[in-house]
Amino acid sequence: MRRVNKDQKVRISLTLNGRKVSAETEPRTLLCDFLRHSLAATGTHVGCEHGVCGCCTVQIDGAAVRSCLTLAMQAEGRDVRTVESLAGPDGKLNKLQQAFQNNHALQCGFCTPGILMSFTDFLSRNPKPTEDELREVLSGHICRCTGYAGIMAALKEAVAAD
């Protein structure tokens, strides 16, 4: 583990959505702040900063993590993926995103990136989950707008489309 002085600025390098990037920040910077403010990846949102809402979910080496509970330094040298990685280069939505649009699974869209990143990880490991399993993963996220009905419908559609 790299040792640094708390007041010293550090340069953190990582792979963000397939591209090598680096920026200087303070050692105490949270990964969510680093992504948003230092790397301009503002698609990742911060809803609670205490690990409850799931808005800030990103993937590190393929596993969904809460970036508000992760220090930027912990992502040093690793492969980070955020919601910006999901659509095709031409902006075409992927299957999960398209299912969200089809089923009105978002209103304000603030919770959505975190939910997409959780399920991108989960569905890659469990392509044929039951409805209960979907609900269990979704219960790690708070959405204040939709009442979850559209999100469940979208998840079911995405799974059925496989």
């Binding site: 999901l86 649009q101 959505t112």
Partner: peptide
């Protein structure tokens, strides 16, 4: 009619105040 708003919000291209 599905929403025009969605593609941007689903791709991390929302423009919220802090962005």
């Amino acid at each position: 009619v599905v929403r025009k708003e969605d593609p941007a919000l689903l791709s991390g291209r929302g423009r919220y105040a802090d962005d």
